[in-house]
Amino acid sequence: MTIHRAVVARVQPLTGTMTRITFDGAGLATFTSTGIGDEYVRLFLPHGPDRGDVSLPETTDNGGWQTPEGRPVAPMRSYTIRAVRPEAGEIDIDFVLHDHGVASGWAAAARPGDVIGLSSPTGLYSPPADLSWQVLITDLTGLPAVTRLLEETSDQVTTRAVIEVPGPSSVQSLPDRPGIRTTWVHGGNGHGPSRLAELVSAAIPPGTDLTGGYVWVAGQTNSLRSVRRYLRKDLKLPVERFKVVGYWVPDAETWTERYEALPAAVRSELDSLWDEPDDEAEDLTIRYESRLSEFGL
């Protein structure tokens, strides 16, 4: 992993709930995109009022990072890359704007010259070789990834996109060509109960012929627990036929505090679930999430 120093070049409001920030700078000269439409990076933000003072982490031998000795820890959040223009040395990241959260607050006040750190990217979208159709379902946080996936998907692939946004003012223009069908749904996104599970079961009901298909779902993490179970256990999809990605947790700071308040034996049990031999990661995740739900998390 490499940590790059990036500088805000431009800020472009997209809607009342999302803004696009373009980054450039010499630190991005070695940035290499994965070429995967939902690739994401970890952003390291200023720790204080000086928007140019960022404690850029140092990479470690095991592929992680650490804060330099004597420096404050930089707040870190993960974000999808909306676009990469290597010829211009630029990266676009679209930020959801809301009334809480360190990254949203930073983005709302962003201006040219601000500095952040960002990591090498990781992509998750991985359709099977026989892909002929796909379903992409997300809330507002996954809209940048869905837009890029639509732009980069072959014309020979039929795509159904379903996007849950807070309201009409959050709708954006998406690629419109034969083979793409987009549905906008209003709700969720912290303003009401998420409907992602309902949208997935409606788009891919039991009995659907899944030959050549791929399902990609992203958004509010807690609401995706039932989605993962539905796709894996009810529809019995093989793991190469779907990807479920949690992007955000309501009141994340409170959730972390409640998790850390669990008895040590419970946390040890939860950690040990990942040590089951020969089990698929998705099945382990389902068991882990089921136990979290039992503890009210």
Rank of each mutant, 00 (worst) to 15 (best):
L150I: 03
T158I: 11
I137A: 05
A129I: 12
R228V: 04
R181Y: 11
W133Y: 06
G207Q: 06
A218H: 05
T141G: 10
R148C: 02
T122N: 14
P144Y: 01
T159N: 03
T221H: 13
D155H: 13
L199D: 00
Q134L: 09
T211C: 11
P128R: 10
G188S: 04
G190K: 04
G167H: 14
R229G: 07
P175I: 01
K233H: 14
L136V: 09
Q172N: 05
A197L: 11
P178E: 01
Y230Q: 03
T141R: 10
G142F: 10
Y125C: 12
R225F: 13
R160E: 13
L136C: 06
Q172W: 02
G213V: 07
L149Q: 08
T221W: 12
W184R: 08
D114W: 04
L196M: 07
I180K: 06
P127D: 09
G188P: 01
D130L: 07
Q220S: 12
L118E: 01
S223E: 11
W133L: 06
Y230K: 05
R229A: 13
L231P: 01
G212D: 00
R232M: 03
P128S: 08
I204V: 13
Y125R: 14
L131D: 07
L199C: 00
T221Q: 12
V135W: 07
G142S: 04
W106K: 09
A203I: 00
G167V: 10
Q172T: 11
V115C: 04
P178G: 04
Q134D: 07
S170A: 15
P166W: 02
Y125F: 15
G192S: 09
A218F: 08
D176R: 14
W216R: 09
T208V: 05
P205R: 05
E152R: 13
V157G: 03
V115R: 07
V162A: 01
L118N: 07
R181V: 14
G213L: 05
V217F: 00
E164M: 01
D209S: 09
S154M: 03
L140W: 05
T122E: 14
L174G: 03
G179N: 02
D114M: 10
A107I: 10
S132A: 14
A109F: 12
P175L: 06
R225G: 05
T158E: 12
P144V: 03
V217K: 03
V171N: 08
S194H: 02
A129H: 14
R195Q: 14
S226A: 14
L131G: 06
A197I: 07
R225Y: 11
S132G: 14
V162P: 01
E164C: 05
Q220D: 15
S201I: 12
S223P: 06
G188L: 05
P112D: 04
S194Y: 02
P127W: 11
P128T: 03
L118M: 13
L199H: 03
V115P: 02
V157N: 05
L143T: 06
P206K: 10
L149S: 07
L231H: 00
G123A: 09
S173Q: 15
E198S: 11
S120P: 12
G188K: 02
Q172Y: 04
G179P: 00
A202H: 10
Y230H: 03
N189D: 10
S223T: 08
L224R: 00
